[in-house]
Simulated scan of single mutants.
Amino acid sequence: MEEKQPHTQLSSEIDTDNAIIVGDPARVDKVTELMDNIRSWAFNREYKSVIGEYRHTRILVMSTGIGAPSAGIGVEELNNVGVKNIIRVGSAGAMQKDIGLGELIIGEGVVRDDGLTQKYVPDIYPAIPSFKLLSLARKYAPDAIYGIIRSHDGFYMDDNAKNEAFWSEKGIVGADMESGALMVIGRQRHLETLSILNNVVLYEGDLSTGVNNLVNGDDLMAQGEIASLKLALDILSD
Protein backbone atom coordinates (compact mmCIF):
# COMPACT_ATOMS: atom_id res chain seq x y z
CA MET A 1 0.00 0.00 0.00
CA GLU A 2 1.25 3.47 -0.86
CA GLU A 3 2.59 5.55 2.03
CA LYS A 4 0.08 8.08 3.32
CA GLN A 5 0.67 11.80 3.58
CA PRO A 6 1.68 12.60 7.18
CA HIS A 7 -0.97 15.17 8.10
CA THR A 8 -3.98 14.47 5.89
CA GLN A 9 -3.45 10.68 5.70
CA LEU A 10 -4.25 10.85 1.98
CA SER A 11 -2.69 8.72 -0.74
CA SER A 12 -3.15 8.46 -4.50
CA GLU A 13 -5.68 5.73 -3.75
CA ILE A 14 -8.26 8.53 -3.48
CA ASP A 15 -8.24 8.28 -7.29
CA THR A 16 -9.54 11.76 -8.12
CA ASP A 17 -8.12 15.07 -9.25
CA ASN A 18 -11.01 17.11 -7.78
CA ALA A 19 -11.17 18.38 -4.20
CA ILE A 20 -13.21 20.74 -2.06
CA ILE A 21 -11.52 22.08 1.04
CA VAL A 22 -13.42 23.55 3.97
CA GLY A 23 -12.28 24.90 7.29
CA ASP A 24 -14.68 23.21 9.68
CA PRO A 25 -14.68 19.39 9.88
CA ALA A 26 -18.45 19.60 10.51
CA ARG A 27 -18.88 21.12 7.04
CA VAL A 28 -17.54 17.89 5.54
CA ASP A 29 -20.63 16.14 6.87
CA LYS A 30 -22.90 18.80 5.39
CA VAL A 31 -21.54 18.47 1.87
CA THR A 32 -21.95 14.70 1.96
CA GLU A 33 -25.71 15.26 2.13
CA LEU A 34 -25.45 16.56 -1.44
CA MET A 35 -23.35 13.65 -2.75
CA ASP A 36 -23.73 9.96 -3.52
CA ASN A 37 -21.66 6.86 -2.71
CA ILE A 38 -19.93 8.46 0.27
CA ARG A 39 -16.86 6.81 1.73
CA SER A 40 -15.12 8.12 4.82
CA TRP A 41 -11.38 8.36 4.24
CA ALA A 42 -9.44 9.79 7.19
CA PHE A 43 -9.65 12.08 10.21
CA ASN A 44 -6.31 13.20 11.60
CA ARG A 45 -5.89 16.47 13.51
CA GLU A 46 -8.01 19.05 11.63
CA TYR A 47 -8.01 17.06 8.39
CA LYS A 48 -11.25 15.12 7.96
CA SER A 49 -11.80 13.69 4.47
CA VAL A 50 -14.46 11.79 2.56
CA ILE A 51 -14.82 10.63 -1.03
CA GLY A 52 -18.12 10.85 -2.88
CA GLU A 53 -19.75 11.35 -6.24
CA TYR A 54 -21.73 14.24 -7.66
CA ARG A 55 -23.17 13.98 -11.16
CA HIS A 56 -20.95 10.93 -11.71
CA THR A 57 -17.81 12.91 -10.82
CA ARG A 58 -15.60 11.58 -8.02
CA ILE A 59 -14.73 14.35 -5.54
CA LEU A 60 -12.71 14.47 -2.32
CA VAL A 61 -13.94 16.77 0.46
CA MET A 62 -11.48 17.65 3.23
CA SER A 63 -11.35 20.06 6.15
CA THR A 64 -8.19 22.07 6.84
CA GLY A 65 -8.94 23.89 10.10
CA ILE A 66 -8.40 27.61 10.61
CA GLY A 67 -5.71 29.72 8.98
CA ALA A 68 -3.14 29.73 6.21
CA PRO A 69 -0.57 27.28 7.67
CA SER A 70 -2.97 24.36 8.04
CA ALA A 71 -4.65 25.17 4.70
CA GLY A 72 -1.23 25.31 3.06
CA ILE A 73 -0.30 21.88 4.39
CA GLY A 74 -3.59 20.54 3.07
CA VAL A 75 -3.03 21.99 -0.40
CA GLU A 76 0.53 20.64 -0.58
CA GLU A 77 -0.55 17.15 0.40
CA LEU A 78 -3.49 17.22 -2.02
CA ASN A 79 -1.01 18.06 -4.76
CA ASN A 80 1.21 15.21 -3.62
CA VAL A 81 -1.58 12.67 -4.19
CA GLY A 82 -2.55 13.90 -7.66
CA VAL A 83 -5.33 16.43 -7.06
CA LYS A 84 -5.40 19.14 -9.75
CA ASN A 85 -8.56 21.18 -9.02
CA ILE A 86 -9.16 22.61 -5.53
CA ILE A 87 -12.09 24.80 -4.50
CA ARG A 88 -12.18 26.31 -1.05
CA VAL A 89 -15.68 26.65 0.42
CA GLY A 90 -15.56 28.76 3.55
CA SER A 91 -16.97 31.67 5.46
CA ALA A 92 -16.10 35.34 5.24
CA GLY A 93 -16.77 38.68 6.80
CA ALA A 94 -18.16 41.32 4.46
CA MET A 95 -15.97 44.35 3.81
CA GLN A 96 -18.71 46.43 2.15
CA LYS A 97 -21.99 47.56 3.72
CA ASP A 98 -24.26 46.33 0.94
CA ILE A 99 -23.33 42.63 1.28
CA GLY A 100 -25.97 40.67 3.19
CA LEU A 101 -25.71 37.61 5.37
CA GLY A 102 -25.61 34.39 3.38
CA GLU A 103 -24.50 36.07 0.16
CA LEU A 104 -21.74 34.32 -1.74
CA ILE A 105 -18.42 36.14 -2.16
CA ILE A 106 -16.10 34.76 -4.85
CA GLY A 107 -12.51 35.94 -4.93
CA GLU A 108 -11.15 37.34 -8.19
CA GLY A 109 -7.88 37.94 -6.33
CA VAL A 110 -6.54 38.17 -2.80
CA VAL A 111 -4.69 40.73 -0.73
CA ARG A 112 -1.98 38.59 0.84
CA ASP A 113 -2.08 39.84 4.42
CA ASP A 114 -0.89 36.53 5.86
CA GLY A 115 2.52 35.34 6.93
CA LEU A 116 2.75 31.98 5.18
CA THR A 117 2.67 33.04 1.53
CA GLN A 118 5.59 35.41 2.07
CA LYS A 119 7.66 32.29 2.70
CA TYR A 120 6.82 31.08 -0.81
CA VAL A 121 7.00 34.20 -2.98
CA PRO A 122 7.69 37.95 -2.56
CA ASP A 123 4.92 40.35 -1.55
CA ILE A 124 4.57 41.66 -5.11
CA TYR A 125 3.47 38.23 -6.39
CA PRO A 126 -0.32 38.18 -6.95
CA ALA A 127 -2.75 35.65 -5.49
CA ILE A 128 -5.31 34.92 -8.20
CA PRO A 129 -7.71 32.05 -8.91
CA SER A 130 -7.97 29.77 -11.90
CA PHE A 131 -9.58 31.55 -14.84
CA LYS A 132 -11.25 28.27 -15.82
CA LEU A 133 -12.88 27.75 -12.43
CA LEU A 134 -13.77 31.44 -12.07
CA SER A 135 -15.51 31.34 -15.45
CA LEU A 136 -17.54 28.33 -14.35
CA ALA A 137 -18.47 30.14 -11.14
CA ARG A 138 -19.90 32.99 -13.20
CA LYS A 139 -21.85 30.44 -15.25
CA TYR A 140 -23.49 28.85 -12.20
CA ALA A 141 -23.63 31.86 -9.86
CA PRO A 142 -23.90 35.06 -11.93
CA ASP A 143 -25.45 36.99 -9.03
CA ALA A 144 -22.72 36.26 -6.48
CA ILE A 145 -20.43 39.04 -5.23
CA TYR A 146 -17.19 39.02 -7.24
CA GLY A 147 -14.12 41.01 -6.26
CA ILE A 148 -10.87 41.10 -4.35
CA ILE A 149 -10.80 39.58 -0.88
CA ARG A 150 -8.25 39.90 1.92
CA SER A 151 -6.68 36.94 3.68
CA HIS A 152 -5.33 37.69 7.15
CA ASP A 153 -3.96 35.82 10.14
CA GLY A 154 -6.18 36.62 13.11
CA PHE A 155 -9.31 38.13 14.59
CA TYR A 156 -8.24 39.67 17.87
CA MET A 157 -5.43 42.12 17.08
CA ASP A 158 -5.84 45.61 18.50
CA ASP A 159 -5.75 47.32 15.09
CA ASN A 160 -8.29 45.09 13.30
CA ALA A 161 -10.94 47.80 12.96
CA LYS A 162 -8.41 50.23 11.51
CA ASN A 163 -7.14 47.65 9.01
CA GLU A 164 -10.64 46.69 7.92
CA ALA A 165 -11.62 50.32 7.36
CA PHE A 166 -8.50 50.85 5.24
CA TRP A 167 -9.15 47.84 3.02
CA SER A 168 -12.85 48.55 2.76
CA GLU A 169 -12.02 51.96 1.33
CA LYS A 170 -9.85 50.20 -1.27
CA GLY A 171 -12.84 48.18 -2.50
CA ILE A 172 -12.13 44.84 -0.86
CA VAL A 173 -15.37 42.83 -0.72
CA GLY A 174 -14.65 40.22 1.96
CA ALA A 175 -12.11 38.78 4.36
CA ASP A 176 -11.02 35.25 5.21
CA MET A 177 -7.84 33.51 6.37
CA GLU A 178 -7.06 30.81 3.81
CA SER A 179 -7.68 31.94 0.23
CA GLY A 180 -4.31 33.59 -0.25
CA ALA A 181 -2.48 30.43 0.73
CA LEU A 182 -4.68 28.33 -1.55
CA MET A 183 -4.09 30.51 -4.60
CA VAL A 184 -0.38 31.18 -4.11
CA ILE A 185 0.55 27.57 -3.38
CA GLY A 186 -1.82 26.46 -6.12
CA ARG A 187 0.02 28.57 -8.69
CA GLN A 188 3.37 27.25 -7.52
CA ARG A 189 2.17 23.67 -7.86
CA HIS A 190 0.28 24.19 -11.16
CA LEU A 191 -3.16 23.63 -9.62
CA GLU A 192 -6.52 25.12 -10.60
CA THR A 193 -7.95 26.91 -7.54
CA LEU A 194 -10.99 28.96 -6.53
CA SER A 195 -12.42 30.34 -3.31
CA ILE A 196 -16.18 30.53 -2.63
CA LEU A 197 -17.11 32.25 0.63
CA ASN A 198 -20.40 32.50 2.52
CA ASN A 199 -20.81 35.86 4.25
CA VAL A 200 -21.41 35.35 7.98
CA VAL A 201 -20.61 38.84 9.34
CA LEU A 202 -22.00 42.16 8.13
CA TYR A 203 -19.43 44.89 7.59
CA GLU A 204 -18.63 46.46 10.98
CA GLY A 205 -20.82 43.78 12.57
CA ASP A 206 -19.94 41.71 15.61
CA LEU A 207 -17.61 38.85 14.69
CA SER A 208 -18.53 36.64 17.65
CA THR A 209 -22.24 36.96 16.92
CA GLY A 210 -21.76 36.14 13.26
CA VAL A 211 -19.62 33.06 13.83
CA ASN A 212 -21.88 31.80 16.62
CA ASN A 213 -24.92 32.25 14.40
CA LEU A 214 -23.23 30.16 11.70
CA VAL A 215 -22.51 27.41 14.22
CA ASN A 216 -26.10 27.53 15.45
CA GLY A 217 -27.52 27.33 11.93
CA ASP A 218 -28.93 30.80 11.38
CA ASP A 219 -31.28 30.52 8.38
CA LEU A 220 -29.59 32.97 5.99
CA MET A 221 -26.10 31.74 6.72
CA ALA A 222 -27.14 28.09 6.65
CA GLN A 223 -28.70 28.66 3.23
CA GLY A 224 -25.52 30.39 2.07
CA GLU A 225 -23.41 27.51 3.32
CA ILE A 226 -25.40 24.96 1.32
CA ALA A 227 -25.42 27.24 -1.75
CA SER A 228 -21.63 27.61 -1.60
CA LEU A 229 -21.11 23.86 -1.30
CA LYS A 230 -23.49 23.11 -4.17
CA LEU A 231 -21.76 25.72 -6.34
CA ALA A 232 -18.40 24.04 -5.79
CA LEU A 233 -19.87 20.65 -6.68
CA ASP A 234 -21.49 22.06 -9.84
CA ILE A 235 -18.20 23.60 -10.97
CA LEU A 236 -16.12 20.48 -10.38
CA SER A 237 -18.64 18.24 -12.12
CA ASP A 238 -19.12 20.52 -15.15
Rank of each mutant, 00 (worst) to 15 (best):
E53F: 06
E3L: 13
L220K: 15
R88E: 02
D158K: 15
K48E: 03
N160K: 11
L101N: 09
F155R: 09
K97H: 12
G109Q: 07
A137W: 06
L197I: 00
G100S: 12
I106K: 03
D153T: 14
L136V: 10
G115W: 10
E53T: 11
V50R: 00
V211L: 15
L116R: 08
P126F: 15
T16Y: 05
Q223S: 08
Q9S: 05
L78K: 03
N79F: 07
T32Q: 12
P6G: 05
N44C: 13
E53Y: 12
L194H: 04
V184E: 09
M95N: 08
R55L: 13
E33H: 05
E33L: 03
A232I: 11
G52M: 08
E178W: 10
K230Q: 15
E3N: 13
N163W: 11
K230T: 14
M35G: 15
G65Y: 08
S63F: 01
I172G: 06
W41F: 14
N80C: 09
H7F: 05
Q188W: 00
L101W: 13
V111G: 00
L202M: 03
A92D: 02
N85M: 10
D206W: 08
L116I: 12
Q9D: 01
G90V: 02
E178M: 11
I59V: 12
H7K: 04
F43T: 10
V81C: 10
Y47Q: 06
N163A: 11
I99M: 11
G115Y: 12
D219T: 05
P142K: 10
E103N: 11
A92P: 09
S40Y: 13
Y125R: 08
Y156W: 07
D218L: 13
G23D: 06
I87E: 07
Y140P: 02
D218M: 06
S40R: 10
V201Q: 03
N163Q: 14
T117P: 00
E204W: 01
G171D: 06
V81A: 14
V111C: 10
V61W: 01
V173K: 12
V173W: 07
Y125T: 15
N199D: 03
A227S: 14
G186N: 04
K30Y: 05
V201K: 04
S130K: 10
I149G: 08
I172E: 08
S208H: 06
R138D: 07
E46R: 03
L60H: 07
S195Y: 02
Y125N: 11
A144F: 04
K230S: 08
D15Q: 15
I38M: 08
K132H: 08
S228H: 12
G154D: 09
N212C: 02
S228L: 04
K84G: 11
E192C: 05
I99N: 12
L34Y: 03
S208D: 14
L214E: 10
W167C: 12
S63E: 00
E46K: 04
V173Y: 08
S130T: 06
I196V: 15
K139P: 06
D176R: 02
V110A: 14
Q223Y: 02
I21G: 00
I66V: 09
F166C: 06
G107R: 01
Q188L: 15
L116P: 00
S11D: 02
R55V: 00
V50N: 03
E46D: 11
V83G: 03
M35P: 12
T57M: 07
G154V: 00
W41Q: 05
E192W: 00
N85W: 04
G210I: 09
